[in-house]
Nucleic acid binder design. Structure first.
Lengths: 164, 164
DNA sequence: GTCATATATCTCAGTAATAAGATAACCAGT
DNA sequence: ACTGGTTATCTTATTACTGAGATATATGAC
């Protein structure tokens, strides 16, 4: 996947102070995300996976067979993107599709035994990689950052449907 | 651009506590980023810009004519991507290329008057949009989040060159 | 001056997605 | 049973880039 665009470090001297603070946070957030994301990508790349594919495998690993529509919602990917990712994983022999007894439109994706073996192998390594990437903060700082970003993210996401 | 993949909300009960904390932070960070990023995208989309294009315009607005190599570093885009973005902006009449007197290989990108008009118009709106998206946190919380994420991002980025 | 190496930008094949739209199935109201 | 609106997934054209490599230029050692 592509990295997020870096919001340029604007000379924002003419903006109200609160906007300057918000923009500075945005720049910093985007850069932090980009850096950790690159770690995540590097970690799965050697096993021939994109982050999207990894995310699907991980979801199936932890939740079991999942409707594609639910994968879509949890992995934050478009409808077509879900089909694309599942197709690719099916082609790699890591995932299979299963019919849904209750709804003929719907399809489950489930790990194959090969997919299970792979995710069992790489998930612990991935967790270590992310942990290592986060080590600029101590554990209590990480908890504090999580708390703050949770509030930020929930409100920002809630405003999306309502427009600006 | 694409949204980042949502790191799946792993059932990580078997992982060491510090890894659980780090993974939780990663999930939360990625989601917060995705949400604010979507705000940013929506804001510039109506003017026919991608976030990459907007980032270049903003950079040129605040820094003046900039070597393409410097754009590359500041906007976090590949070499080919820089050429792509500048090409598109040139085609839209918002940016022009200028030769560099000191180095015949290098080229500056600079805003046209049309590009200047556009960025002057949309940047304040964009700043307001980002500020609004951040309103899940108060100003002092935003400052705190910035401080934490700065540490996190700097260390995570520093580790990239050295591998995992 | 020569040459090996590094650097700035461009070119282009390829990638990972998006988003619009198609199709079949589902569901509630009549 | 029929109808119209909704939903789950798939299909496909399109997009925004990446990254390898090419080319011209710059640099520094000899």
């Amino acid at each position: 996947m592509t990295l997020p665009r870096d919001p340029a470090p604007a000379s924002t001297a003419t903006l109200p102070s609160e906007q300057q603070v918000a923009l500075k946070l945005w720049v910093t957030l985007a850069r932090a995300f980009a850096a950790v994301n690159e770690h995540a990508m590097q970690d799965v790349r050697d096993d021939g996976l994109s982050l999207g594919e990894f995310a699907v495998l991980e979801l199936l690993h932890h939740r079991g067979p999942t409707l594609q529509g639910d994968i879509q919602k949890r992995v934050l990917v478009s409808s077509g993107g879900t089909t694309f990712l599942v197709d690719r994983l099916v082609k790699k022999g890591l995932v299979e599709r299963r019919d849904c007894a209750e709804d003929k439109r719907a399809r489950y994706a489930a790990l194959t035994s090969e997919g299970r073996r792979l995710i069992r192998r790489i998930f612990p390594r991935h967790a270590r990689r992310i942990t290592s990437a986060m080590r600029g903060l101590g554990v209590s700082e990480q908890r504090e950052a999580t708390r703050l970003l949770k509030s930020l993210g929930v409100v920002a996401a809630a405003e999306l449907d309502s427009g600006d």
